[in-house]
């Protein structure tokens, strides 16, 4: 491996924290979903880097990364459907304006 494992891990950690801040800070639900995609991708980089450098069976990490990609695609499909249904009813997709379940 040309680049040491730690650099990949730190890169993934930076991406994860950026995605986490975006998730916490955005008001738009689509923006929140995009930030969650960023976090999932950071986790995938970690999985692939470990499968390349430390795992005895390099296939395992990539299989798990493929599962994460599939689950992320399913999450985005359902999330965007909910966003569109919400927009049709409430005419807003700001997360802090949709407070039906708060007292």
């Amino acid at each position: 491996m040309i680049i040491p494992l730690e650099h990949f891990l730190i890169f993934a950690a930076v991406l994860f924290v950026i995605g986490l801040c975006g998730t916490l800070v955005r008001r738009n639900i689509v923006g929140i979903l995009m930030s969650i995609e960023l976090m999932l991708n950071a986790v995938n980089i970690n999985l692939v880097a470990f499968s390349r450098s430390t795992s005895l069976d390099p296939v395992t990490g990539q299989i798990f990364a493929i599962f994460v990609v599939a689950l992320a695609a399913a999450a985005v499909a359902v999330g965007l459907a909910i966003v569109i249904a919400l927009y049709r009813v409430r005419k807003t997709i700001c997360a802090d304006e949709i407070s039906l379940l708060k007292w």
Binding site: V30, N44, S51, Q62, I66, V76, I84, Y87
Partner: peptide, 28 residues
Amino acid sequence: ADFLAMIQVLIYVGAVMTLVIFAIMLTE
């Protein structure tokens, strides 16, 4: 991880981001 790179381009860039951009245009 060649296959995963292809999957990334196909699913994320091809499908997920298209969905996201559709949702943005429908709601923004």
